[in-house]
Amino acid sequence: MSSTPSQPGQPAESTTLLSVQDLQVEYRTRRGAVKAVDHVSFDVSKNEVFGLAGESGCGKSTAAHAIIRILKPPAYITGGKVMFMGHDVRQMNDMELRRFRWRHVAIVFQSAMNALNPVLSVGNQIKDVLRAHTNMKPDETHERALELLRVVGIDTKRLGSYPHQLSGGMRQRAVIAIALALNPEMVIMDEPTTALDVVVQKQILQEIRQLKDEFGFSILFITHDLSLLVEFSDRIGIMYAGELVETAPSQEIFNSPRHPYTHRLMNSFPTIWGARQELLGIPGSPPDLITPPSGCRFHPRCELALADGTCKQVRPMLIDVSSKHRAACHLVEQQLAVQKETVP
């Protein structure tokens, strides 16, 4: 791979695969409802890699799980729409949902050790998917399972191995093989490489990229590691305290982040291309989502918060900065207004 930060290849096709609109998810706890995902909207196009980033607890994983409706109580979807290829996922009944999952959208979890059933062989866990969704005969599922192992770079002799007999990297590959079993249109990757060491991490990301180009699926990539995301994805959404605060092509996020939080986030990680600036970190901690801050949720930690109290009182909306770049910040709003005035 070259040293430039991002290589979005061809511009993504404009056909929208997944469209999330005003998604709301609540955790119902004894202390009250936690608005873990609050009016989040984004689209993912065919063949695109869309990254969701933010601190842990910002709701990015919850949002992803809500898309294929695998939230567990006390988490509930309380509003919004999830459209996938024109079908409303929230309206699906159990049968439709079962068919929709994995055939169209598969998911790869953070920790492969916990994502694999310890008492079933890897082969059986792949075949399980095939048996549940297709009418393949045993020798066909066997062939397909071997093929999938080859695709993700696991020795086919490992088909009968159990998870504990595999290394961390191999387990993650096995989980990816399971995800690709039915050639889904989209794979959700929830921190797929966080538990791995850096070398294996880079290897696997590279392989995911190749697989994506080969099979042509979209990826919704979730991570707290923004630098990794900038390298890996075409577009990025930044979440803070349950809200989407900025979306833009990776290059733009990297070169000209507009939201103060994104700015901070960019500076709080070492990039793979060497320290661009000194690492700043973000003062304060993410807010309590049972009683989130009024106005802009980032305002208590934001050093640029407007002195007139707008940030504290008024909730900013996502507005277009450019055709592909949107941000939710009063400051950005003011700047744009000034630009408009000066350039009539």
Binding site: H65, I68, I70, K72, R98, R99, F100, R101, W102, R103, A106, I107, F109, Q110, S111, N114, A115, L116, N117, P118, D128, V129, A132, H133, V175, I178
Partner: peptide, 15 residues
């Protein structure tokens, strides 16, 4: 039931 592999199994569309 709180383990990831249960969630994954459900997401896989198993019965």
């Amino acid at each position: 039931l709180a383990e990831d592999y249960i969630t994954l199994a459900q997401a896989k569309g198993l019965s």
